[in-house]
Design a protein around this nucleic acid. Structure first.
Ligand SMILES: Nc1nc2c(ncn2[C@H]2C[C@H](O)[C@@H](COP(=O)(O)OP(=O)(O)OP(=O)(O)O)O2)c(=O)[nH]1
Ligand SMILES: [Mg+2]
Ligand SMILES: [Mg+2]
Ligand SMILES: [Zn+2]
Length: 572
DNA sequence: GCCGTTTTCGGCCCGACTGTTTTCAGTCG
C-alpha cells in the first residue's frame, strides 16, 4: 500500500462523504490530509511498520480516526469503512463525479432517484429532457452536463509544468498585445511550480475589464467558454486544458496574488490566522472591520499576520506557516544565482547541436560554465560514446575552451550508465579524464527497492562519480518511479560528496522536489541539469530552479551557483 | 475528523458565476 494509493482512497472517501451530505469539516479533513500526503516524503507503510499507529498520529493531519483506517489498509489492503460507505450509496458515483459541472448533489440525485450508472445512460437521460422536471433544474443544466460529458470523454490529464508554462505565456502575450494591461502573471500551481498543473490560472490588473474578458474568451484557441463574468472567466483550450483568469484593481494586487497563488490549504490556514487576529482576508484585501489594512503588496499581508514572506513555491499548507511565524524561512536559491548547466547533450551522442553552438548559447545567457554530458558507450540507441569518440570530443572541447577563454568554461562531462550490477559503463582510467561524471540508470528498471538501492549505492563507491542523474527514473504521467531507500542514498551522497541531480526536463523533474528538503538535512548538494538535447531547452533551467526552491534549497545547496574556481575545486 | 502555550470541546475561509429562482442552491475557484 503506497502513499499514492492511500491518497486515492482518502479522496474517494471525501467524495462519497460529500454526496452523503456529511459534515463539511470532516470532508475537509480527508481532503487536507490527501493533499498533505502528496508532498510527504516518507511512505506511511514504513512508518507504520516501525512505529505503529502512534507513528501515524504523530504526522500532521492524521488523528486516531484516520490512523486506524490507514493501518487497516496497510495490514489488509482493504478498508471496511469505505466498503460500507460505498454500499450505502448508489453505484458508480465516482464516475459521475468526474464529469465537469457535476457535483455531489446532482450525482446523488441521478444515481439515487434515476438509477443512472453509466455515461450512456446519463446521455440518454439528459437528452430525454427529464432532468428539467426536477425542481431547481432546467434545460441549461442539461446542456451544461452534456458538454461536461464530452470533456470527460476526452480524459484529459494534468499537464506537465513545462507544457503549461508556454501556453500561459502565449495567452499572456496576446492579451498584453490587444488590451492595455497594468499587470499580468501566471498564478496557481504554475506560480508554485508544481510538477503538473490542472489548469492555467492567470491574474491581471486592468481598467478595461470588459475588453479583457471579451479578448480572453474569444482567443483563437479557445474551444469553449465555461464562464464569463466581469471579475472572472474560465475557458477550455484546444491544447486540452482549462484556463481561468481573474481581473483586479491596482490596489488589490497583493491580496489577489496571495489568494490566486494558493494552494487552497495554505489560503485556508492564512485566513484562519487572520480571523484569530480579528481580521478578515479575501482576494481584495486584509480588513479590520470595514477598514482595509493591506492589499497592495503580498508582503504586507503576511507581515500584518505576524509572518515573514513565504515564497510561492513553499505555499503548501504544510509547515511553512509555522516557520514563517518563527522567521525561519530561508533565502531560497534564485534563477539569477545560476551560473551554469550540468547536463547537456551534444551531437556527439543524441543531441542536435554541436558543442560550439551550445557554448555560444551559454555565453548568451551569461553562464560561466556548462557541462557537456553525452551518453556512455553501452547506450547504443542514444549513440553512446566509444572511447575513441571521447578522445575526439575532449580535443574539441580543449580547442573551444581556448577560443572562448574568459567567456565560458566547457566542462568535459559524461552521463555514464549505471549498469545492472552497479558498476559504471567505463573503467576508472577512462572516467578519470572527465571533469564531471553523472551516473544514470537507463536500463533494467524492473528491480525491487532493495536491489535498485544497492545498485545505486554501489555506483556511489566510484570516486569519479560526481552526481546521480534523474534518480527515480520516473516519466511523469507515463512511467512510475522505481522505489528507492532514499535515506540510505542521502546518507552516502553526503558522506562521499556526491551530488544529486535535479533534472529539469519537464517529464522528469527528478529528483522529485518532495525529497529535496529531506536530502538537504543530510547535507546533500544538488546539480541542476536541463538534460538539453537542443539549445532551446536551456530554458528548462527555470523548472529546475523551481524544484530546488520547492525543496527549500538555498544558494549553498545548489552547485550551479558556485563560481568557476569553486566548482573546479568541488569536482576534484 | 483534526486541533490546541488562552481551549481536550467547539471551532473549522471566503467569494464568483450560472441557472434557477422571487431569494438562492450548486459548483467551482
Ligand atoms: N481561499 C480559497 N482559495 C482557493 C480555493 N480554491 C482555490 N483557491 C485558490 C488557491 C488556488 O491555488 C487558486 C487556483 O485554484 P485551482 O483550482 O486552479 O488550483 P491550483 O492552481 O492550486 O492547482 P491545479 O494545478 O489547478 O489543480 O485559487 C478555496 O476553496 N479557498
Ligand atoms: Mg490551477
Ligand atoms: Mg484554476
Ligand atoms: Zn539520462
Amino acid at each position: 500500500m503506497t502513499n499514492h494509493q492511500i491518497i486515492e482512497i482518502l479522496n474517494e472517501i471525501a467524495e462519497l462523504l460529500e454526496v452523503k451530505g456529511e459534515n463539511k469539516f470532516k470532508i475537509r479533513a480527508y481532503q487536507k490530509l490527501s493533499r498533505f500526503l502528496s508532498s510527504y516524503p516518507y511512505e506511511l507503510k514504513d512508518i507504520y511498520k516501525e512505529k505503529g499507529i502512534k507513528g501515524l498520529t504523530e504526522i500532521q493531519n492524521i488523528g486516531e480516526g484516520i490512523a486506524k483506517k490507514i493501518a487497516e489498509l496497510i495490514d489488509s489492503g482493504k478498508l471496511t469503512y469505505l466498503e460500507e460507505l460505498k454500499k450505502s450509496l448508489p453505484e458508480n458515483l465516482e464516475m459521475l463525479l468526474k464529469i465537469p459541472g457535476m457535483g455531489p448533489k446532482t450525482a446523488f440525485l441521478l444515481g439515487d432517484k434515476f438509477k443512472i450508472k453509466t455515461i450512456s445512460q446519463l446521455e440518454k437521460f439528459l437528452l430525454s429532457g427529464k432532468l428539467r422536471e426536477v425542481k431547481g433544474y432546467g434545460p441549461k443544466i442539461e446542456e451544461k452536463l452534456l458538454k461536461g460529458i464530452e470533456l470527460y470523454k476526452k480524459g484529459e490529464k494534468r499537464k506537465l509544468l513545462g507544457e503549461a508554462y508556454p501556453i500561459a505565456y502565449k495567452i499572456i502575450n496576446i492579451l498584453k498585445d490587444k488590451v492595455k494591461i497594468d499587470y499580468i502573471a501566471p498564478v496557481g500551481s504554475l506560480r508554485r511550480m508544481e510538477d503538473t498543473v490542472g489548469d492555467i490560472d492567470i491574474l491581471a490588473v486592468c481598467d478595461d475589464k470588459k475588453k479583457l474578458m471579451d479578448t480572453f474568451t474569444s482567443l483563437d484557441f479557445v474551444d469553449s467558454v465555461i464562464a464569463k463574468g466581469e471579475k472572472k472567466s474560465s475557458v477550455h483550450l484546444l491544447e486540452g486544458i482549462q484556463a481561468d483568469i481573474r481581473v483586479f484593481n491596482k490596489d488589490e494586487i497583493g491580496a489577489a496574488l496571495q489568494y490566486f497563488t494558493g494552494n487552497k490549504e495554505h489560503n485556508v490556514l492564512i485566513r484562519e490566522i487572520a480571523v484569530k487576529k480579528g481580521f478578515t482576508l479575501n482576494e481584495y484585501g486584509l480588513y479590520k472591520g470595514k477598514k482595509k489594512i493591506a492589499g497592495e503588496k503580498e508582503e504586507d499581508i503576511y507581515k500584518l499576520l505576524g509572518l515573514s514572506y513565504i515564497p510561492p513555491e513553499l505555499r503548501l499548507g504544510a509547515d511553512e506557516i509555522k516557520l514563517a511565524a518563527e522567521n525561519k524561512i530561508p533565502q531560497l536559491v534564485d534563477l539569477k544565482d545560476i551560473k551554469g548547466d550540468f547536463h547537456i547533450h551534444s551531437n556527439y551522442s543524441d543531441g542536435r547541436d554541436d558543442i560550439e553552438t551550445l557554448a555560444k548559447e551559454a555565453i548568451k545567457r551569461g553562464y560561466s560554465y556548462i557541462a557537456i554530458t553525452d551518453h556512455s558507450q553501452s547506450l547504443k540507441v542514444a549513440h553512446g560514446l566509444s572511447i575513441q569518440r571521447i578522445k575526439e570530443q575532449m580535443q574539441k572541447i580543449d580547442k573551444l575552451n581556448k577560443k572562448y577563454k574568459d567567456k565560458v568554461l566547457i566542462l568535459k562531462g559524461i552521463e555514464c550508465d549505471i549498469l545492472q550490477d552497479g558498476t559504471l559503463d567505463y573503467s576508472d582510467d577512462v572516467l578519470q579524464n572527465f571533469d564531471f561524471v553523472i551516473g544514470s540508470v537507463h536500463t533494467n528498471f524492473k528491480m525491487n527497492k532493495k536491489e535498485m538501492t544497492e545498485r545505486i549505492l554501489k555506483a556511489m563507491d566510484n570516486k569519479y562519480l560526481k552526481s546521480i542523474g534523474h534518480i527515480s527514473g520516473r516519466m511523469i504521467n507515463m512511467r512510475e518511479p522505481y522505489e528507492l531507500d532514499y535515506g540510505a542514498i542521502f546518507d552516502k551522497a553526503a558522506k562521499n560528496n556526491i551530488a544529486l541531480e535535479i533534472n529539469a526536463q519537464p517529464e522528469r523533474l527528478d529528483i522529485s522536489d518532495i525529497y529535496i528538503k529531506e536530502a538537504i538535512k543530510y547535507g546533500v548538494k544538488f546539480t541542476i541539469g536541463t538534460d538539453a538535447h537542443i539549445f532551446e531547452s536551456f530554458d528548462y533551467i527555470i523548472y529546475g530552479v523551481g524544484k530546488a526552491r520547492r525543496g527549500w534549497a538555498t544558494k549553498d545547496d545548489i552547485i550551479n551557483t558556485y563560481s568557476v574556481e569553486k566548482i573546479l575545486k568541488w569536482m576534484k
